[in-house]
């Protein structure tokens, strides 16, 4: 019966920051695997501390994995829809050009591959995806 399902649309919700717990790394490997298997990502949604995965202002030691860069590359390469929850993001210093200008912050920290938007995008994703999976 499952043979009929050729292509499944996933939304992956990331609740945790990289380096603190394994969850973001698990989410990354899961996302890569589902794409390799021919499934689709409807949306990546970074929520709460998960927004830290989308910072472009990070430097890691050479023998460490730069998770933010890994996400950025994957999102760019696969042209994924990647959304960062606005209320989670701006209070954690994840700032895009619009927020930077609005609050006169003088800096942008959000990777250009992701966009800041509201929780409505998460609800939209629950409506339009076949599966929603959370990593936290």
């Amino acid at each position: 019966m499952y043979g009929a399902i050729l292509n499944v649309k996933f939304t992956v919700v990331v609740h945790s920051a990289p380096y603190s717990t394994q969850a973001a790394a698990s989410a990354y490997r899961f996302t890569k695997a589902l794409l390799e298997q021919g499934h689709d990502v409807y949306r990546l949604f970074f929520f709460g501390d998960g927004v830290h995965n989308t910072s472009k202002l990070t430097v890691v030691a050479q023998d460490d994995t730069n998770w933010q860069q890994q996400w950025d590359k994957l999102i760019e390469l696969q042209k994924l829809d990647s959304v960062v929850c606005v209320t989670s993001a701006i209070k954690r210093g994840i700032i895009d050009e619009a927020e930077s200008a609005r609050h006169e912050l003088g800096a942008v920290s959000l990777s250009s591959s992701s966009e800041i938007s509201g929780l409505g995008q998460l609800i939209d994703a629950t409506i339009n995806s076949d599966r929603v999976i959370n990593f936290g």
Partner: peptide, 15 residues
């Protein structure tokens, strides 16, 4: 608080 935020967003979008 995050649970509440998700619940409210879902309700606003009439789920």
């Amino acid at each position: 608080h995050q649970s509440l935020d998700i619940a409210l967003a879902a309700a606003v979008f009439e789920q």
